[in-house]
Design a protein around this nucleic acid. Structure first.
Length: 661
RNA sequence: GGGGACGUAGUUCAGUUGGCUAGAACGCUGCCCUGUCACGGCAGAGGUCGCGGGUUCGAGUCCCGUCGUCCCCGCCA
């Protein structure tokens, strides 16, 4: 196909901006062919760029050359059109540009396109897998263009707001060292220091604290973070944080900054005004009232402790106290199968049991009737605050949960049920932005697997001043100066006032079971820095992808990240991660994968060093066996192997590599 | 690491109790068409039923394994 050069063709208008007022203007538009309607003597092209669509028309009688070009056009061809804007005889009300069209005088075919695997339109039915394999085409679709535009605008607004508040944006290293606790690290091997690895940061935590020590007073960064953990719809292996830190800051000051910044970000997303200050709950209150540390407060259904009602029935039911209940408004008519589904949900959450009571105008129906003390159901209704037509659900504390750890929450199962039921019955109102600060997180949690205390936030979080003396004697009771920002039940981010004194930092490491030598080896630089006049400081990090996803009305972060990874942490388009070159591993990095043992070519003329690597294919299904040959002299080395395998060989300064399949 | 759902033309799907020479829609290709805008009409091409094994006279269908996608639990300071 004969293609045209761009030459000095210059765009005068974007596709989406032309209006009736432009009628008569000579314009040049450039874009992709969305659709072609060929009527023989007339061809209509819908031309698309990121701004929108405009109809182009060619007429065989009036302009045969342009018409011939249009005849060759197919979807997603890239074309330029010089022509005159004309009012249409019959406008198309579905199109912003529907009152006009561009009558083509010259049509430039700038590039052709293969038929795309899915149409480049707003609503498509293609699977996410197909979309991810051709992400560049998916991104061409208007919904993705809108979401990334939204992301740009919000990000820009956050940057501006922070700049106005005196924050400096400062970059911190990606090639750094592993921090303790927390998620698994992604590692990057060092060529210059064989056997040594950088860790990609899970967050810039230590660096931002060092920037406070360095006197920058207010720092922020919109920064990528890396965590090698299993993924969810709201978790990507690399994700973006709005990270900030302030010297001499109290939690209230951090909250005020974030509240202002969020107002600006949401305004940039054309959202309604957000009321500040955001409500606050302590961690203990959140668990007691909602059974989670990230409550969705857009709906009620708060938890009620109804242990008193179950006191006498405890043995008969073989349950542990406390028992918590919640009221599902208007759900007394719930069917047997619905209630069974709720019970299955509780079971899946490792809950002990689910009891229910249907409140009607005249009575309360429940299997508990004979088990509870007389008038027990009425008591339950009164405590729970249920009205006729409502359904009461009650879940006892799980005995293992209660026995395992004295401070373990007892409401998480019913908290999960609260959310599940509300989603199921569509009781969550749309269009609300319920921000919430959750404060006073416990400083430590007991880890039964590691048999030690671990930081519930991170080891640099300051204990609450009044709990300081319990640090060693009763670590589980120590509250921290850590806080979370929650929006509509999503954890948007966590922050804390940090430890700024070396002595306290060392006490924390001790409680965590980190020996002094170990602490010095891993954070010597940081502990030393603390000793040089560290100001009190605190900050927070917000998940930018989550903020954008909520603003875009999406539940998956993949929808607001240009090139996201799958739940298995793969990039289906680039096919990453991929096997490295064996020579790169051995020669540059001196990393020897499992099952690669060096041997020597037995040909006395050759004596090349040879490595064979076959660890990556599934040993259960090897391909045909093939001989292993020296890559220099062709001499057969050892026994034949099941394919595929990789052979690397070195003779003097030369390296060779071959994959045998 | 565990549980669940899914995998059949380019795409989205249908495919009964195992009988298939595997269908539909959209898309694609060719021809016709001067006012279309989900244009229309006619004709046509297009399949390793994810992959590997097994049961069977016979497997898209049943069994085992494996790979991949999605959701959830564990995990994620």
């Amino acid at each position: 196909m004969q293609l045209d050069p761009l030459g000095d063709l210059k765009r005068t208008h974007t596709c989406g901006e032309l209006r009736a007022g432009d009628a008569g203007a000579r314009v040049t538009v450039l874009g992709w062919v969305q659709r072609r309607r060929d009527l023989g003597q007339l061809i209509f092209l819908d031309l698309r760029d990121r701004s929108g669509l405009v109809q182009v028309v060619t007429n065989k009688e009036k302009n045969a050359a342009a018409h011939a070009r249009a005849d060759q056009c197919r979807p997603e061809f890239v074309v330029g059109v010089e022509g005159t804007v004309a009012r249409r005889e019959k406008a198309n009300p579905n199109l912003e540009t529907g009152e006009i069209e561009v009558a083509a005088e010259r049509l430039y075919l700038l590039n052709e396109a293969r038929t795309p695997p899915f149409p480049i339109e707003g609503e498509i039915t293609a699977s996410e897998e197909t979309r991810l394999r051709h992400r560049y085409l998916d991104l061409r679709r208007p919904p993705l263009q809108r979401k990334l535009r939204l992301r740009h605008r919000v990000t820009l607004a956050l940057r501006r707001a922070l700049d106005e508040q005196g924050f400096y944006e400062i970059e911190t290293p990606f090639l750094t060292r592993s921090t303790p606790e927390g998620a698994r690290d992604y590692l990057a091997p060092s060529r210059v220091h064989p056997g040594h690895f950088y860790a990609l940061p899970q967050s810039p935590q230590l660096f931002k604290q060092l920037l406070m020590i360095a006197g920058f007073d207010r720092y922020f960064q919109i920064v990528r973070c890396f965590r090698d953990e299993d993924l969810r719809a709201d978790r990507q292996p690399e994700f973006t944080q709005l990270d900030l830190e302030m010297a001499f800051a109290t939690p209230d000051q951090v909250f005020a900054v974030i509240e202002g910044v969020m107002q600006r970000g949401f305004a940039a997303a054309d959202q309604q005004h957000i009321e500040t200050p955001f409500p606050r709950l302590t961690h203990a209150q959140a668990l007691a009232r909602y059974g989670t540390d990230k409550p969705d407060t857009r709906f009620g259904m708060e938890l009620v402790d109804v242990s008193a009602v179950f006191e006498t029935a405890r043995q008969a039911l073989r349950i542990e106290l406390p028992v918590h209940a919640l009221v599902v408004p208007g759900a007394a008519s719930a069917s047997r199968s619905q209630l069974d589904a709720f019970a299955d949900f509780v079971k899946a959450q490792k809950g002990r049991a689910l009891y229910h009571a249907k409140v009607t105008d005249t009575s309360i129906e429940s299997a508990l009737e004979k088990t509870l003390a007389s008038r027990g159901l009425e008591w339950l209704q009164e405590l729970a605050g249920a009205r006729p037509g409502d359904l009461i659900l009650a879940v006892p504390s799980d005995p293992a949960q209660a026995a395992g750890e004295p401070h373990a929450p007892t409401t998480t199962v019913i908290g999960a049920l609260r959310l599940h039921v509300a989603q199921q019955r569509k009781l969550i109102p749309e269009g609300k932005w319920n921000f919430l600060w959750v404060t006073e997180f416990p400083l430590f949690e007991w880890s039964p697997t590691e048999n030690r205390w671990v930081s519930s936030h991170h080891p640099f979080t300051s204990p609450a001043d009044e709990d300081m003396e319990k640090l060693e004697s009763d670590p589980g009771k120590v509250r921290s100066k850590a806080y979370d920002l929650v929006l509509n039940g999503w954890e948007l981010g966590s922050g804390s006032v940090r430890i700024h004194r070396q002595d306290i930092q060392q006490r924390i490491f001790r409680v965590l079971g980190l020996s002094e030598a170990e602490a010095r080896e891993r954070f010597g630089f940081f502990l030393e820095a603390l000793a040089y006049g560290t100001p009190p400081h605190g900050g927070i990090a917000l998940g930018l992808d989550r903020i954008i996803a909520l603003l875009a009305g999406e539940t998956s972060l993949r929808e607001v990240i240009a090139f996201p990874k799958t739940a298995q942490a793969q990039d289906l388009m680039a096919d990453a991660p991929a096997l490295p070159s064996l020579v790169q591993l051995i020669k540059e990095l001196q990393i020897f994968p499992r099952d690669t043992l060096p041997s020597r070519c037995e040909n006395t003329q050759c004596t090349a060093e040879i490595w064979i690597w076959q660890a990556f294919f599934h040993p259960k299904y090897p391909g045909p066996t093939k001989p292993v040959k020296c890559l220099f002299c062709g001499n057969v080395v050892g026994k034949p192997l099941g394919t595929p395998f990789v052979v690397a060989a070195q003779r003097e300064q030369e390296w060779r590599e071959e994959t045998v399949t």
